[in-house]
Write a protein that binds this DNA or RNA. Structure first.
Length: 719
DNA sequence: GGCATGTGTATTTTT
DNA sequence: TACACATGCC
């Protein structure tokens, strides 16, 4: 620290920082809270602090950087790397809470009762398991309607993440399920038990066990002391378990920096709470608090409008953003006739900006719900405008992908009951009943009639290992190969095919009398996938309508597998860090390098673009009808809208279709008139340049813009 | 006990 | 609309 001032000045990570940012970056040891408004250089501040820490001599592998997505962590580390000596930041631990939990538990989990080869299940898997238990318990077919599997998972997850008693969660968020509380409790008990037997952790378990690990004598300190510094981004979107984890990780060493913005808290459905930010000074006494208010991203007119939206919030927020980026251009509020018209106007504006030099990748279309972009996607495809879409259904969630992954998961963790179930149901003539019988025969489960039965713990099981070509074949899979259960006649041929495929993936062959013969080392992952695909393809072609399109997905999965470091990483990454964007459906994929971004507002968090288009700014869409039930929900939607607006650097367009046709649930051509989103009341309209489009009325003011369109079209021919 | 067909219902955001 | 669930047939 005895460096001269002159020398400190020329550190690359201090260049161009304002006073507040510099204070955060150079903060010494001890807790630090950075309250950073949108576009105030929050990410840059973290990056620079990382570089500063490394420069101060903190070993990179003793720094933990927790971010909201893995992509964010990667980008920050790359940027910090540019400011330091080559390679010095490479060893920083970076990733989401969940991914970090996964990594730590595999190394240190044993004392907390976790075996290193667990697999991780996603929300869909959790739902399937809930459903399995629900039907076993006979709750599915009572006269009263019982909560559906998705609802069950939501209730479970919210209860766990908020750390609130089930009855409270039901009364507050799922009042229509309150009567079923006893059944729900039974299912949850069964669910937890089943997960443990399967050697599987769900998203919530990852956090719970990390927290528990911190509280485990001995190893708790080992894990915590592994890191000198912990840095947390997007702190406003963490929940109380995550706060507890941080407390556990910082029992003795208090070096922690959290960065967040209470005005951008948009994940309460995941039990995130702004209390974490507000209570930080209480959790970590003597915390230094730094507030960043100068916005470097947006022009002042965009900020004025964004601030005005937040000014009407019920709650007061800590900052008011200002910018030095003057501009004459106000944000544009366009009223469209209907959704079709909206698509046309959006495309037109996008192309206009493209012609003026803003590449597609510096423009984004943002919307509340994934399906809001459906019509636009079709129009973009028609016009050959390439795009990537973020948010919404990912391709790993498609049934055929899950099928293939289930095979791999069994190989990776032979106790994964759910994957077994999924694979067995693919066979002709096998339904839930037969599947359960087979599972019971290979001792993966007890018959549902059996009371208690022979529940074999997996510790006992792993004694029965047999070595084959360096690979260890563990029980249920081994039994399937060496001691196959009987199956219905119609299933036999396929069943043999399945066993052969598994054997081949394990690097063994099945000899006479089902003797398992070691053959060679298990083939590499891509080969294993090829073997599975060979078995799966005939089944798949019969079950799915659009087989060719789905086949391409499987090829893409193989592509991902070929770049994976290991099978274990492959399986884990698919659940913890799935491919974010769907491939562009428009245009030839390899010819176009420039593409437009479509994104849900949630997925747009932390991003910025030169031009931002927010579509469907109608009440019922933003705020979503689903969340207008209570004041809290309405306020969260307001913050969501604010997040969307503040993504824009130079130009912000907000579109509002006047008319919605509700052909979705009814026949006929019924339509209704929508209201502009309540977050843009009349008092704010002067902050916008207002436009109307698609007017049939030639007398209207739109005549001018039509003329302009024609003239622009003409000028395109020669300019 | 599997599977095809018919009926009814919910509908967001993500690790 | 599209999907989950229920019924009834093979």
């Amino acid at each position: 620290m005895a460096k001269s001032k002159a020398k400190t000045q020329c550190k690359p990570y201090l260049e161009g920082l304002n006073a507040a940012q510099r204070e955060a970056v150079t903060h010494g040891d001890g807790p630090l809270l950075v309250v950073a408004g949108a576009g105030t250089g929050k990410t840059n501040t973290i990056v620079c602090r990382l570089a500063c820490l490394v420069d101060r001599g903190v070993p990179a592998e003793r720094i933990l950087l927790l971010t909201f997505t893995r992509r964010a962590a990667g980008e920050m580390l790359t940027r910090a790397g540019h400011m330091c000596e080559a390679g010095t930041t490479a060893k920083v631990w970076g990733g989401t809470f969940h991914a970090t939990a996964n990594r730590l538990l595999r190394i240190y989990g044993r004392p907390a009762g976790i075996s290193a080869d667990f697999t991780v299940m996603d929300q869909g898997d959790s739902a399937d398991m809930m459903n399995l238990i629900r039907s076993e318990m006979g709750l599915a077919k009572r006269d009263r309607r019982f909560p559906r599997k998705e609802t069950l998972v939501k209730i479970y997850s919210l209860t766990v993440n908020a750390g609130v008693p089930l009855s409270e969660v039901l009364d507050k968020h799922f009042p229509w399920c309150s009567e079923d509380i006893e059944g729900i409790k039974d299912i949850f008990r069964g669910y937890v038990e089943r997960k443990r037997q399967s050697n599987v952790l769900d998203y919530d378990d990852l956090l719970l066990f990390w927290s528990a690990l911190c509280d485990t004598p001995g190893v708790g300190n080992t894990v915590a002391d592994r890191f000198d510094h912990v840095l947390v981004d997007e702190y406003q979107d963490t929940n109380s378990i995550q706060a507890r984890i941080l407390l556990g990780m910082r029992k003795s060493r208090k070096n922690i920096m959290v960065v967040g913005d209470d005005a951008q808290s948009i994940y309460s459905f995941r039990a995130a709470t702004v209390r974490n930010i507000l209570d930080f000074p209480d959790h970590f006494p003597n915390a230094r608090v730094v507030t960043l208010e100068q916005n470097y991203r947006s022009t002042q007119p965009i900020l004025d409008a964004s601030n005005a939206v937040m000014d009407q919030a019920a709650q007061r927020y800590t900052k008011n953003l200002w910018s030095q980026r003057r501009s004459e251009q106000k944000p544009v509020l366009t009223t469209c006739v209907d959704e079709t018209d909206q698509c046309q106007v959006v495309c037109g504006n996008i192309l206009d900006h493209l012609e003026q030099g803003t590449e597609l990748m510096h423009q984004a279309v943002l919307f509340r719900a994934s399906h809001h972009s459906a019509a636009l996607e079709i129009e973009l495809a028609r016009r050959n405008i390439p795009f990537h879409k973020y948010g919404g259904l990912k391709f790993v969630e498609a049934a055929h992908i899950k099928d293939v992954v289930a095979f791999i998961r069994i190989l990776e963790n032979p106790f994964d009951e759910l994957s077994w179930f999924r694979v067995l149901l693919l066979l002709d003539g096998v339904g839930p009943r037969t599947a359960r019988r087979i599972l019971s025969a290979i001792r993966m489960a007890t018959e549902s009639s059996g009371e208690g039965g022979a529940q074999v713990s997996k510790q006992e099981e792993s004694d029965e290992e047999s070595e084959a070509g360096g690979a260890t074949i563990v029980s249920p899979l081994w039994r399937l190969l060496a001691d196959p259960p009987r199956v219905p006649p119609a299933t036999r041929e396929q069943f043999t095919g399945l066993r052969d495929a598994f054997a081949e993936c394990q690097g063994v062959t099945l000899g006479d009398g089902d003797k398992v013969l070691p053959q060679a080392a298990p083939p590499p992952l891509p080969t294993q996938l090829e073997i599975i695909r060979r078995f799966y393809e005939p089944i798949f072609k019969r079950t799915y309508e659009n087989a060719p399109a789905r086949l391409r997905d499987i090829e893409q999965l193989q592509q991902i597998a070929s770049t994976s470091k290991s099978r274990s990483r492959f399986v884990t990454d698919l659940t913890l860090d799935p491919p974010a964007a769907t491939a562009d459906l428009a245009g030839p994929p390899f010819l176009e390098e420039d593409f437009l971004i479509l994104s849900t507002i949630h997925s747009a968090k932390g991003c910025e673009w030169t031009v931002v288009h927010i579509i469907h700014a109608a009440d019922g869409m933003i705020p979503s009808d689903m969340s207008t039930g209570d004041e809290e929900g309405i306020e969260e939607e307001r913050r969501l809208f604010y997040v969307a607006m503040t993504r824009a650097k130079d130009d912000l367009y907000i579109y509002f279709p006047l008319r919605y046709y509700h052909t979705r649930y009814a026949m006929g051509d019924g339509h209704c008139y929508a209201q502009l989103t309540r977050y843009l009341p009349g008092s704010m309209h002067e902050m916008f340049e207002q436009r109307a489009s698609g007017d049939d009325d030639p007398e209207s003011a739109d005549g001018r813009s039509t003329t302009k369109r024609v003239d622009d079209g003409l000028s395109k021919l020669w300019d």
